[in-house]
């Protein structure tokens, strides 16, 4: 089961609709995720809500990263190195549940997403591998 790092990482890119939180993404998203972490303190949540752009300006993030947060574009934030457990702090700051936050990344309404979950969730069929299309 030991394998070289390159093939270990390359396989992750073959999963449709998924961004595995690799070292590369962890490095790119370091400050984006640390910003999210700051929202665990109630006083920071108040300050962020009062002026989001000003709060974000204090963090050494890229403009694209800041914009993804202002837009609540979570797929974009994932592309730019965000991690879902860190971005979850923003769901809670917005007083939204994980279901509400997660559903925004799927192109479905929250109602449709919830109905899918109640019906047993998204089938893995067809979304296992880009290459194999299974």
């Amino acid at each position: 089961m030991t394998k070289d790092l390159h093939s270990y990482l390359a396989e992750f890119e073959d999963i449709p609709g998924t961004r595995v939180f690799t070292a590369q993404r962890a490095r790119q998203g370091f400050w984006l995720n640390q910003f999210c972490m700051s929202l665990m303190k109630p006083e920071n949540r108040v300050r962020f809500k009062a002026d989001e752009a000003a709060y974000l300006a204090d963090w050494p993030m890229s403009d694209e990263q800041r914009q993804s947060i202002l837009d609540r574009d979570y797929n974009r934030a994932l592309e730019l190195g965000g991690n879902i457990y860190f971005l979850g702090k923003l769901f809670f700051t917005d007083e939204k549940s994980f279901v509400q936050g997660v559903s925004t990344m799927t192109g479905m309404s929250v109602e449709d997403y919830q109905a899918m979950m109640l019906a047993g969730g998204r089938s893995p069929d067809g979304v296992r591998s880009k290459k194999e299309q299974n």
Binding site: P16, N75, T106, R122
Partner: peptide, 17 residues
Amino acid sequence: MSHQLQGPRAGLINQDF
């Protein structure tokens, strides 16, 4: 057990697995 919280593939559940 099975779950995916991120990206367009979020909501994945695999009961057989």
